[in-house]
Design a protein around this nucleic acid. Sequence first.
DNA 1: CCAAAAGTGTTAATCTTACACCCATGA
DNA 2: TCATGGGTGTAAGATTAACACTTTTGG
Lengths: 224, 224
Amino acid sequence: MKNLTDFSNIGVSVSISLFCYDGGEKKILTVVNKKQPFKNALTLPNKIMKSDQSLEDVCSEILKENIGNDKIYMEQLNAFGKVYRHPEGRIIDISFYGLINLEKDSVVLNIENNAKFINLETNPELAFDHNEMIDMGLKRIKRRMKYRPLGKNLLPDQFTMKELEGLYGSFLSKKFDKRNFRRRILEMDFLREVKKVQRNSRGRKAILYEFDPKKYNNYSKTGF
Amino acid sequence: MKNLTDFSNIGVSVSISLFCYDGGEKKILTVVNKKQPFKNALTLPNKIMKSDQSLEDVCSEILKENIGNDKIYMEQLNAFGKVYRHPEGRIIDISFYGLINLEKDSVVLNIENNAKFINLETNPELAFDHNEMIDMGLKRIKRRMKYRPLGKNLLPDQFTMKELEGLYGSFLSKKFDKRNFRRRILEMDFLREVKKVQRNSRGRKAILYEFDPKKYNNYSKTGF
DNA sequence: CCAAAAGTGTTAATCTTACACCCATGA
DNA sequence: TCATGGGTGTAAGATTAACACTTTTGG
């Protein structure tokens, strides 16, 4: 394969906005930057692409490095290409977002990189144009969940209707009426009851649901 | 600015799916490829990015070169990054789509490149992954027009309701009921009547509309 | 037996769809 | 005067939104 460096001295990096929903809060994976001029600043996990890698390969590498697991739902967001966006040189960045659940997806945070999930309610300030990337990810999720199911990647395998409602409420920044929410979701027909019920320290038992994989995937592709 | 070629030998290109709506048909700008192995194949207009350019700068260059006008509505679509997508080497492509009207936007087609608008109904076959890009563009427009106004960039400054209906019908591949269409569009409140009326060779005069720029732009940003 | 959490239905309002005739015009 | 294309309204059906009480359970 021919080397193209004669007509293009541009570095390509990939960044990931990895969202989770944990304890009723949206969180995002950050690492601490090691190089000047933004040394010690928070950033999204990212990596320079090598010429034998696809975009997805770079995603995998970033995920493995930072959480030890690359079996994560990912979607491409956007390319960021302003000339002076990166102080180290000419680097364009292809930004992805991903969804993860901290209970069912195995996660080993990279201590070396100071990888951790931080609460989005705290409005963290990240270096580079990484806040823009997060915002774009959140917007994309918000839009997407209006015509496609959401939850499989963010919730544990089994969950109550209230938990699902919390998730929707959190990402859409809106409070749902629980009767209407339950009806709408059940009409969409991608959940099934797990016969067992769960107990919460007090009060009545709740029905546990899980996603019907076929129906979920169909709607996930084609929308409602 | 530091040269990054030591850790990334990747070329970056930009491609544009430039759509127009002309004679009731969707068309797209293509050029004829000059290099092997796809010599003489149709492709989307595209260009290798130079390190002092932003993505938007490359778009401008492509547009100027092929239609002599870069004042065109553009949005980024997607980055295409498969390792073997380009036979000439390792090139990732950032794909954009644009919307143009052939009457009001000045267009001088580059003869050298064989630039022309071809009808999408003919299902043209393009080289590389360019058909995928077109499909993605069409899908994006389709989705977008459900919650944002469309037409300003595709129609002449003044147009009849029927023309707007045709545009919507064409991009959404669906036939509208003219009474319902008219009502819905007018309720959206981004059109204004141009007092004058137009005559079509035969029959009653039609009301000419134009977009109210403020309202159109607001909805364009925030959606309905 | 009571406090806490889960579950359940109905009604009014709104939005969507389907549908057919009259109007203005030029030939 | 008639053929052509443009414009208009209404009613039935579907969807959404608002709203409060009963059930189950553990302490």
